[in-house]
Structures are given as structure tokens and as C-alpha cells.
Design a protein around this nucleic acid. Structure first.
Lengths: 218, 218
DNA sequence: GAATTAATTGAACGTTTGTTTTATTATTAT
DNA sequence: ATAATAATAAAACAAACGTTCAATTAATTC
């Protein structure tokens, strides 16, 4: 046998990508064999090589797509207002939402960096660096404007990213908490973490920003 | 050839463990072959099976040792005082110190859970659960005493653990910051995160606890 | 110094791995 | 219809994998 009825390159590629993210997230890149992946897609192993020249190229393609989607997601979510409080709120909410929606893909990006060769690793780290730079920019502007009490911008940025990305480790949909509740709680914790204080002139976003008790007076 | 001059079972086992942690942390469990590990130790692959019946048993032994060391470290560091503020301060400082000192081992424990069979995974998760339970206990007591403003104890505990464990991702000794400075900053961030407020009756630990600006009045 | 035990080697086993090659069939364009 | 192209199967490759086994030597005990 050879070409099967109804076979379509685009659909096959999409099916490969989806199955690969699932398998790598569950078993790890090294533990996923090309034959197992092919079986999941319902195809022979050799067919995979029509879409990705090597196993590592497949991994890299998945990871790059994830990072590019993350950057695009933030560009779309970034508020027009330069207000650091509103920007940080939007950043945290977008980050939480994105990572919960793409748990498996995030897992792959966090776990499989070491399986990339030098050049491909650099490319992913460059995208990651661009994303982290956005958070550092927000924290720096907030510190300069007096909205935040942040001593070490770089360290605080890492702390926030790790705390919020960590949500994928324990959060499972359809359990105790909804995505919105989780996002609310992480938003509150982040605002306290950076020492955010109430604004004198409330802006539109403040209704959202002050949604819970992060500014509660003791 | 066979037994080599000066060979000693205990030393060989220790050398295997050390080399395995390094290799697994660097390349991953699946990517580390028994032959590569043996070469690192300076021995033939067959010799490894005198100490560990299978590759997975080796991994499990390393991970269990790590978790037991973490629990022992906390038991030794836990202050006698029941004061939640002092307990949380000690917890965070011990956690940071332990994980920086054992970066590679921590990496293995965080990354290779999926390579364990069901029973071994359960054993590790049980130890991990016992450790996390300590933090939840501190947060709950602090919330009840009014020292902390924590809405969701379980969620906050995960956030703190992920934020503080994340230090191993970016921290490198002999760079910009010392371990003590990093511990100070994470301590500050944690205290703000949980909404810690100053105590009326200052205790011995408060000198330390209030070392920086986490209670700065705005 | 002989017997015993501990530590290791070297070779081998059967599987599985990522990948390549060649042939074959479905689809599309002419 | 026919030619060209896209998509896949089937078989094969050498290399690497975890693990086992028998032989061999160092250290220890008697």
C-alpha cells in the first residue's frame, strides 16, 4: 500500500504536531519514539519524515510555535495605557490564561530545552528572553513611578514568572477552582508581591485590578 | 581483567550516585545511557548492576534520597517557636538554601517524575506531600492567628514553593548576588505575598524577619 | 599460604532506536 | 485519458540500548 484515501498533507502535519505535543508532555521527548508517534497519528513512521526532517526538528518546531504564540498573545493583550499597574495586571492574567489553555505545550517548552542542539536552543531562549523583558520593563516602570516597591527587577520578574507558570503543575480544569478564580488569586498575590499600592486617580482598569482584597487596609 | 586495585564498593556506589545526578540533570534520565554513566565513573557498564538492579532503581534511589534530605533539613531548621512568621521565615530560608546547594539533585527530582513506575512515583509524591503539608500548616496557622492574609492556603503554598524552587533555574553562584542576598529577597517577597503584618510584641526572630523593607509603611 | 569473598571486566543477547530507500497508490492538472 | 505530483507503506540499515553471564583478579579471612 501507499497513499491512502483522503490523505492530506496539511491535516497530517497538524495531527502530527498535536499528537507529538501530547506524547512528549506525557512521556518526554527522549521516551517518545517516532514509531509510537506515527501509531498515534495512524500512519507509518516513514511518513513523519515528509513533514519534519529529523525528530529534533519536530521538537524545535513545536517549541518555537509555542513561544511565538505566547508573544503574540501578549501583544494582543497588552493594554494601550502605559500605567504599570494595569500592564502588570494584564500580563499576569494573560500569562495564566495562556498557560492553562496550553498546559501540554508549556510542559514541553519547560522540560525539553536540554534536548535541543546549541543553535536551536539559542533561538528558543531568545524568544523567551524577549517575553521576560516585557515583564521587566513593566516592573521597572512601576518601580520608577512609585507604583511598585521592587528592589531587584530581574529577580522579581523570575519569581513572578515561575510562580504563575507553576499553575500548570497543580491546576486541573473542572476541579475546585475555575480559571477566572485562579487568575484572580494569582493577580492578587502578584500585586502584593510587588508592593503595589492604591492609585490616587483610579483608571478604568482599576475596577478590575482592585477586584479582590490586595489593597485591603489593615 | 577483573577486580581493579583499590576498588571499594562504598566509594564506587557514591561515585555512581554523584555522576548519575550530574548526567541526569544535564541530559535527562532517558538520554543518559548506562554506558555513559559507567564511563564517567571510570568503570564498565556491568559493574553498575552490582549496586542498582535496574536503571530505574538507580533513579528512584537518587530521588528518594533527595526528598529525605529535604525533610531532614527542614526538621533541623524548624524553629521551636510556634510563631507563624518565624516559621515561614525559617521555611523559606531553608528551602532556598537547600535548593541552591543541591541544584542538580533538585533538577532531577523536578524533571524525572514521569520516568518512575507507578509505585515508585507514589513513594516520591508521598514524601513531597509531607513537605508541602508543613508549609500549608504554617500558612493556615498564620491565617488563623491573623498574621497572614491568605485566602487559599493550598494555592498559596504551591505559589511559594514554585517561586522559591525556581531560584535554581536562574541563580548561579559567584555571580551578581550571594546566596544570602537571594534568600533575603525571596524572604521579603514571600512575606509580602502572604500579607504578613508587623507583630505587636516583637520576638527574637523579628530582628531577622524585618531585616529589609517588607513592612515599610507607605 | 590457602580458601573465600568482593569487585570488576569483556563479551554477548535480544530489542529498539532514528532514519533511508524504494515501490505504490491517490489526487490533481492537462 | 494521461501525465505529473503528493502522500504514504513496507522493508531494511547500522547503531545504541538495558541487561545478563561467565571468567578473572584483588582483598580478606582462616
Amino acid at each position: 500500500m501507499a497513499r491512502t484515501a483522503g490523505s492530506d498533507g496539511e491535516k497530517t502535519q497538524a495531527a502530527i504536531r498535536e499528537a507529538a505535543v501530547d506524547l512528549i508532555a506525557r512521556y518526554g521527548y527522549e521516551a517518545m519514539s517516532m514509531r509510537r508517534l506515527a501509531a498515534e497519528v495512524g500512519v507509518q513512521a516513514a511518513a513523519l519524515y515528509r513533514y519534519f526532517p529529523t525528530k529534533e526538528d519536530l521538537l524545535f518546531s513545536l517549541m518555537r510555535a509555542h513561544m511565538e504564540a505566547l508573544l503574540e498573545s501578549w501583544e494582543a493583550a497588552r493594554p494601550p495605557s502605559p500605567d504599570p499597574v494595569a500592564q502588570l495586571a494584564a500580563f499576569v492574567r494573560n500569562h495564566i490564561g495562556f498557560h492553562i489553555a496550553r498546559r501540554h505545550s508549556t510542559h514541553v517548552n519547560n522540560m525539553e530545552l536540554r534536548s535541543l542542539s546549541h543553535d536551536k536552543l539559542s533561538a528558543i531562549l531568545r524568544l523567551r528572553g524577549a517575553y521576560e523583558k516585557e515583564l521587566r520593563r513593566i516592573l521597572r516602570q512601576g518601580a520608577e513611578s512609585g507604583d511598585f516597591a521592587v528592589e531587584d527587577v530581574a529577580l522579581t520578574a523570575m519569581a513572578i514568572i515561575q510562580m504563575t507558570t507553576g499553575v500548570i503543575v497543580w491546576f486541573r480544569p473542572d476541579e475546585r477552582l475555575s480559571v477566572a478564580e485562579v487568575a484572580d488569586t494569582y493577580h492578587d498575590m502578584t500585586m502584593r508581591l510587588v508592593g503595589a499600592r492604591p492609585r490616587r486617580n483610579n483608571m478604568r482598569e482599576d475596577v478590575h485590578v482592585r477586584s479582590r482584597d490586595e489593597f485591603r487596609a489593615w
